[in-house]
Design a protein around this nucleic acid. Structure first.
Ligand code: FES
Ligand code: FES
Lengths: 145, 145
DNA sequence: TAATAAAAGGATATTCTTGTCCTTTATTCA
DNA sequence: TGAATAAAGGACAAGAATATCCTTTTATTA
C-alpha cells in the first residue's frame, strides 16, 4: 500500500505541475499536464474537474484556456488537496483500522503510530502548493516516471 | 487512505490475536478470531489460509483444531506480515507514485518522506508478533471496534 | 457571427479489493 | 470405523477505484 490513493498521487503531482506553470504566468492544458506528470489524460481530466469544482484550482475554457492556480492557492497547504481527494483518514485514522483511534481504546501500534502520523500531517500542512516551484522550474525535482 | 490495506489490517489484528492466545498455550478457531478482532469471518478465513501457506502462522484441522504461532514466529517482526500481504511498497515506494523512488530523480516530497518512511519501516521491523502479548492479555490494548 | 479550442459533464468499461458460498480434506473421538 | 469438527480450496458476488468514451458548454478569435 501507498500513503495516498493513485487518484491523490495524480492530484498532487498535477497541482505541483500547474503551480509551477502558474508561477511563470502560464496556464497548463490537460494534455500538457498529463504528459508532464505521466498520467492517463482522461482520468486526470476527472480529477482536475473535481479540484476545480472544489475551488482548489482554477480553469478557463476555450482556446488558450487551461488550468492555473491563483496567488492565494499557491500559499495553501498540500493537506487541502489530500483532504479533498482522500479525506481525513490519513490524519486521524487508526493504523490497524479500528473504528476510532483513541487513547482510551488504543490498538497495539497506537503510541508509536501517533507520532508518525503526526509527522505526515505536519509535512502536508507545512508544504505549500507553490513551495517547490523554484526546484521544479530548475529541474531539480521530478513529477514523472 | 490508510497505511495498510484492509486485508493487511485484518491480518495484523488476527496475528496479534492468535499470538496472545498461543502465549497462553491455546489455539484460536476462526470464529473466535473473527469475533475477537471484529472482522468478516469468511474473508478472514482466506487471509489466514494465505498466511498459513506462507508459513507465518500454523494451523491444525479437525476437532479442537485452530490457528497458532510457534515460539519462532512469536519473535518474528511484524514487517513479515505486512510484506506478505501488502508487498514492499510501504518500505520502498515513492510518496507520489513515481515508478522508482531515488535520489537521482526525487519527487518534491522525497527528502522529508524518506525519513517518515524509514520510521514506519523501523516500527514494523522492531515490533514482533508476540511483542504485545502481555498488554493484550491484560486488556490494555484493543484489536476491535 | 461562425469556426475552433478546451474544459465540464454524463455514461460506461475495466480492474482490483473485499466479501460470501459451497465442497473437499484432514483430524479427533466415540 | 464412522460421525463430527474445523481448516483448505475453488468459484463466485458485490463494491470501489481506476480508466475511457462521447456529448455539451463556454470562451476565443478570425
Ligand atoms: S488506536 Fe490505532 S492508531 Fe490509535
Ligand atoms: S522519489 Fe518520491 S519519495 Fe523518493
Amino acid at each position: 500500500m501507498a500513503i495516498f490513493s493513485k487518484t491523490c498521487e495524480y492530484a498532487i503531482r498535477a497541482v505541483f505541475y500547474i503551480a509551477h506553470k502558474s508561477a511563470s504566468g502560464d496556464r497548463a492544458g490537460l494534455k500538457d499536464i498529463a504528459a508532464g506528470i505521466d498520467s492517463p489524460e482522461l482520468y486526470l481530466a476527472k480529477i482536475l474537474q473535481d479540484l476545480s469544482r472544489k475551488g482548489l484550482i482554477r480553469s478557463v475554457k476555450g482556446p488558450n484556456g487551461g488550468f492555473y492556480v491563483d496567488a492565494d492557492s499557491l500559499a495553501r497547504p498540500l493537506s487541502d488537496i489530500v483532504e479533498a481527494v482522500d479525506g481525513q483518514g490519513l490524519f486521524h485514522g487508526c493504523a490497524l483500522g479500528l473504528k476510532q483511534c483513541s487513547e482510551i481504546n488504543p490498538c497495539p501500534l497506537h503510541d508509536q503510530f501517533k507520532s508518525i502520523r503526526g509527522q505526515i500531517s505536519d509535512l502536508l500542512h507545512r508544504t505549500t502548493i507553490g513551495g517547490f516551484n523554484e526546484e521544479l522550474i530548475g529541474g531539480l525535482l521530478s513529477l514523472k516516471k
